[in-house]
């Protein structure tokens, strides 16, 4: 009983991180119909920013989150504005190849500059934990979970209550009509990509404190973002949250049942099965029927 509840707690805590990791990816896919492979590299870069700020200057990881968000916001804006905007309207997979190319470059440079060493970020409170009877809640995981929820909430508020957010949502629903209403599509796309990147970088900073930091870390989170997005439905922020939590639970329970070797296999089988039975996501609606 206690062990079961503990598994559920672990699953939910990890699910919050997955939700946060998948959020920006879902936004970009939903609004622009782009599969952003660079999302994984963005998470990696966010994690490294936190690692270096903590390692060199002793800045608390949580304090570094806005720094990495801002940095990747700018990079994301430039990437969309200069590169991806050029190829919209072409075949769907062009953006996949373009962002995959950027990923190879970023990962290669990270490897060159910072080596392939596994790094970890250990703030003083890394070892704290809350004990509730037989149950253990690692303090750091809880903090990350809460921070993930805050980031998600921030994005939901932004999309729902700001002018730019409304323009983004309008563009997602109907690009042509939005353009006729005076929305500058290219700018909105660049902003959307930048916001997606910022959220991913924030997620990366949080992920860095809970997992190892290394140049190739983005791959696994990119694939997890696919799963989150497919469960939650495209461009649906609440869906991403539910998707992340569901995925975290399924993965944790799956590992408890089948053993840790099948951790990723569970994720991918889940991905394929959901795509086959409900391609619009378990909780989502389709914005692009393509």
């Amino acid at each position: 009983m206690g062990a079961g509840v503990q598994i559920v707690i672990n699953g939910i805590l990890i699910g919050g991180i997955y939700a946060c990791a998948g959020l920006g990816f879902s936004l970009v896919w939903g609004v622009m119909n782009i599969i952003n492979i660079f999302h994984g590299a963005t998470i990696m870069l966010g994690a490294y920013i936190t690692f270096w700020l903590f390692h060199l200057y002793g800045i608390d990881p949580l304090v570094t989150v806005p720094v990495s968000m801002l940095t990747l916001f700018l990079i994301g804006y430039a990437v969309q504005r200069i590169l991806i905007n050029r190829i919209l309207g072409g075949p769907l997979f062009m953006a996949i190849i373009l962002t995959q190319g950027l990923t190879l470059i970023a990962v290669n440079l990270a490897f060159y500059l910072w080596t392939g060493d596994f790094r970890s970020i250990r703030p003083p409170y890394a070892t704290w934990s809350l004990a509730l009877g037989p149950l253990v809640v690692p303090f750091l995981r809880l903090i990350i979970f809460v921070a993930s929820l805050l980031l998600t909430a921030l994005l939901v508020v932004f999309l729902g209550w700001t002018k730019v957010g409304r323009a983004i949502r309008a563009t997602r629903m109907d690009r042509e009509t939005a353009a006729l209403m005076g929305v500058e599509i290219e700018k909105i796309y660049a902003l959307t990509f930048a916001i997606g990147s910022a959220i991913a970088a924030g997620a990366g900073s949080l992920i860095g404190t809970a997992f190892v930091v290394e140049p190739g870390m983005g791959d696994s989170f990119l694939l997890k973002s696919f799963v989150v997005c497919v469960i939650g439905g495209l461009g649906n922020m609440g869906g991403a949250l539910v998707g992340g939590l569901t995925f975290g639970l399924v993965e944790t329970i799956g590992v408890a049942v089948f053993g840790p070797g099948y951790k990723d296999a569970i994720a991918f089988i889940l991905l394929v099965v959901i795509l086959l039975i409900r391609p619009e996501g378990l909780f989502g609606r389709e914005y692009y029927a393509r």
């Binding site: 896919w29 119909n33 599969i35 769907l92 997979f93 996949i96 694939l223 696919f226 497919v230 099948y262 990723d264 296999a265 994720a267 991918f268 089988i269 991905l271 394929v272 795509l275 086959l276 391609p279 393509r290």
Partner: peptide
């Protein structure tokens, strides 16, 4: 057979998922 009903990105991601799942298995 089931996957080729998916279109565009969904098919691409599903095939990616199959490749990763097969590797893990």
């Amino acid at each position: 057979f089931p996957m080729l009903r998916l279109k565009g990105h969904y098919f691409a991601i599903a095939t990616l998922g199959v490749a990763e799942a097969v590797r893990e298995i």
